[in-house]
Simulated assay, not measured.
Amino acid sequence: MGNDPSPDVMTRTAPPPDHTSHYGPHADQVVDLRLPPDRPADTLVVLVHGGFWKARYDRAHTGPLADALARAGYAVAVPEYRRVGSVGGGWPGTFDDLSVFFEALGTITTAHGLRAKRTILVGHSAGGHLALWAAARHRLPAGSPWRTQWRPDAVVSLAGCASLALTDVWSLGGQAASALLGGGVDDVPERYALADPGALLPLGVPVTLLHGTEDADVPVAMSREYAGLAEQAGDPVRLVELPGMEHFGLIDPLSAAWPHLLDALGSS
């Protein structure tokens, strides 16, 4: 994923989730749930992890952030999904998994007594891409198996790969977009048209983009480009640039990014 995080958010331990539920038969088709310790939650945060869609990065590194969000009063769902390098990951399995997960989410949360009034998607890095894409599925063609009329109440992208096309053109993550979709944007443009949130505007959903100016893994220019396109499409979008912040600080509740994330969730 590029530069080593500082401090140790990628390896820092966190308390285990309150529940882990399956949304499919594969070992990666699971979701961790965390609930606020002392009060019911009005808002469900779906936290989608990053790792350039690669199998060697799983949801475990989001534990500190998910735990902090739960302690801040949010119900938190952290889905796992098949990734490049695992059986069935990449195109189309990764997108199949996210779609099936969101279809099952209501049943899973209700089974654990959660009846949140609002749902906000939060995604980091490649998870930012998936969160934006999940919110854009109502823009997919009528024949797509991933199409739905469901929309979240808001999306918060943390140093997100908001444009798959730029992820490919800029060769981010060692040609990660090409590995995800089975080719570059010039090789399989029809796949990028279905999988790239930048190609599915307008979302019609409020979006906040948090991005560090010193991000060497996903340059802040990515969020700047997406924000410009979203504004042209008439979407409500807000870009918050964090001076001196690198890539992993966005998921560290001990970093200067944490109050900005809380503000984004509270104002969404």
Rank of each mutant, 00 (worst) to 15 (best):
L194N: 05
R56D: 14
G63H: 03
T107M: 08
Y192T: 01
M245T: 12
S255L: 01
P36A: 13
L105I: 05
P243Y: 00
H129F: 07
P25F: 14
T119H: 10
T62P: 02
G128K: 01
V84L: 10
L140C: 12
E241I: 03
E225F: 13
P152C: 12
L201S: 11
A176I: 03
D58T: 15
A77H: 04
H124R: 03
A41V: 10
P189W: 12
A77D: 05
P145F: 13
S163G: 10
E246L: 01
G123Q: 01
Y57V: 11
D18G: 15
P253W: 04
W91E: 05
L194D: 03
Q29W: 13
V76F: 00
L47E: 09
R59A: 15
Y74D: 04
E103V: 13
P219A: 09
V84W: 05
K54T: 07
W258G: 00
Y74Q: 04
P152A: 12
S267Y: 08
Y192F: 15
R191W: 12
A142L: 11
H61Q: 13
V78Y: 00
V31I: 13
R59M: 09
D187H: 13
V31L: 09
D28H: 12
P219Y: 11
T11P: 03
E225L: 06
G127Y: 08
L105E: 04
V48S: 01
D196P: 10
W146R: 03
A55L: 03
P25Y: 14
E246P: 09
K117E: 15
T94P: 08
A221K: 10
L200M: 12
G63D: 04
P64T: 05
L203H: 04
L35I: 13
P206L: 10
L239I: 03
D38Y: 02
G128V: 05
G90S: 09
E80D: 15
R59S: 13
S144P: 11
A72M: 06
H26N: 11
P253M: 05
H138L: 05
D32Y: 02
L158G: 06
I251E: 01
D4N: 11
D28S: 12
F102L: 15
W91G: 05
A179W: 00
A256P: 02
P197Q: 12
P36L: 11
P219E: 08
G228V: 14
S144V: 12
G88Y: 06
